[in-house]
Amino acid sequence: MDERKQSGNGIPLLQLRDLVVEYYTRSGVVRAVDSVDLDIYKGEVVGLVGESGCGKSTLGMALLRLVRSPGKITSGKILFKGKDILTLSENAMRDLRGPEISMIFQDPMTSLDPLQRIDDHFVESIRAHDKHISKEDAIKRAAELFDLLGIAPDRLQDYPHQLSGGMRQRVMIGLALALDADLIVADEPTTSLDVLVEAQFLDLLKDLRRRYNMTLILITHNIGIVAELADRVAVMYAGEIVELGDAGPLFAEPLHPYTDALLGSVPNIKLDEELKIMGGQPPDLLDPPAGCRFHPRCPYAMDRCREEEPPWQEIQPGHWAACWLYAEGKRETLHG
């Protein structure tokens, strides 16, 4: 942790400050990302987890300023290498997408051109990054990357639809590498893949991050994947990050009751534990509960939880949570 903080010029690659993203729907305003603070350091993999509708994708899209209408970033700052990208022109933003921040989606077909062969995608990316490179050299580099990705080089001439889902996802990560992107945001990259192909893809990510010191924000509802790959984990609930910390301590001793309940409800193939069932369901973001948004489902909720929003606090070094249990000195409640 400390080592990471001291690396580079000391400032995080990406800093989110009080970020708010809202959807203006006919029935009202949905605050899908609510006052999020988050720092991402060079070379780390940060997992962003939470259940459907909690705002993960909205947060991911906001980092590229690609939130879809009727959504809008309404306040806060997104500092990328110290510069607020919310103040950039649309043109400057376009230059940033790809070479600086790359995004990978669950369905890679949405980002690949169906009429372009895979090698053309690579040549374009490589030459966009390095204007002096010849086409031949670009193809050679693409073939090298393909080798690294574990795809036979003769597939370079295929069209996207001729590749399997797993290969397409490899191509996506390869394109981000070809551009030498500083930050990769991957939104449910393995969700449509089969278990073995998913595990192969995770193996690839592990290998690539070692080679390239890749910085990755991994958005997923699959807690197993985050446990497998992430250095740090951010847990989202109803538009807010409720807990953030290094993967080890967060999984071993979750601080927020939601994290605790979430982890308890996932079957673990290595153990024979009964599942803990979390009652209720996430709130309607058009009308979220007052106080702590988790209070209607929280087994530890106190009066204060129903009225006041809990503060975002560093409970242990590098381990943050928003929960009244800590301000009230009742942390044994969770881990007695």
Partner: peptide, 25 residues
């Protein structure tokens, strides 16, 4: 064996160390 090894475990204590066999169906 491969399928069992590929299941992501929701606990970083059990991170997979052996690589998964290559290839697809």
């Amino acid at each position: 064996q491969a399928l069992l090894a590929a299941v992501p475990v929701p606990d970083p204590k059990f991170r997979r160390t052996a690589p998964i066999p290559k290839g697809e169906i």
